[in-house]
């Protein structure tokens, strides 16, 4: 029962409490570049999720064979191989998404989320736990990147465009607030500003929740 609880915790922890982007501030590189449009954001989120799952499972499988001195080089090679695989897969199956993302997919190799989770968690825990941790971190990254992309596109261009990644067809495209759009948010400066505001608000909310919990514990102890 305890094992099940700790497994479940390793899945839910990275989504909200230790969100890789908003709390640990790892892997900010793609966030600023990819959140220009909502399509690119969730496409990138899926790519990072896939790479995370593959590398975590692989690292967890070979963790007992690899000698301790050459751990980091082996991890880097594994990550680079899987990134190349995902890159080629995206080039084949989702060509329009690949064209709009470009070189950022190769940048997943130096994304700190993957190396960080691999080193901190997957190299010490079993396959199922690493898989759940990868799913959690990937979903955390996907959620935060998608939310930021959604906000930036909605406020910066006044609407939304959804395209099918496999065929490039536009599913839904509406720009109702185009005349009131804050076009500043669609540029790089807006990326930094939006990310700073969201990180600030998230950390403020977390601080308040923690204060309430410590107050509750203090009053419970007094009673």
């Amino acid at each position: 029962m305890e094992k099940k609880q700790s497994l479940l915790k390793s899945f839910t922890n990275p989504i909200f409490k230790e969100n890789p982007i908003l709390v640990s501030l790892l892997g900010l590189c793609p966030v600023l570049i990819v959140t220009d449009t909502f399509d690119k954001s969730w496409g990138m989120g899926i790519a990072v999720l896939l790479v995370l799952i593959f590398t975590n499972v692989c690292i967890s499988l070979i963790r007992k064979i690899v000698p301790n001195e050459v751990r980091i080089p082996v991890f880097i090679v594994i990550i680079a191989c899987f990134v190349t695989i995902v890159d080629l897969l995206m080039q084949a199956f989702t060509p329009t998404l690949y064209e709009s993302l470009g070189v950022i997919i190769s940048m997943i190799t130096v994304n700190c989320i993957i190396l960080g989770r691999g080193e901190a968690f997957a190299s010490k825990n079993g396959v199922l736990a690493s898989l759940l941790d990868a799913l959690g971190s990937g979903i955390g990254f996907f959620l935060s990147v998608s939310v930021i992309g959604l906000l930036r596109e909605f406020l910066g261009k006044g609407g939304l465009t959804l395209t099918n990644p496999f065929t490039g067809q536009v599913i839904f495209s509406a720009y109702p607030l185009e005349d009131y759009a804050i076009s500043f948010l669609a540029d790089k400066a807006g990326a930094f500003l939006m990310l700073g505001i969201i990180v600030g608000i998230y950390s403020y909310v977390r601080i308040r929740i923690e204060e309430k919990e410590t107050k509750k514990l203090a009053t419970a102890e007094v009673k």
Binding site: L25, G196, I197, V199, G200, Y202, S203, Y204, R206
Partner: peptide, 12 residues
């Protein structure tokens, strides 16, 4: 402001 110290204000 409390939440913004560190990373938030640096990004802004």
């Amino acid at each position: 402001k409390r939440g913004f110290a560190g990373a938030g204000i640096a990004l802004v």
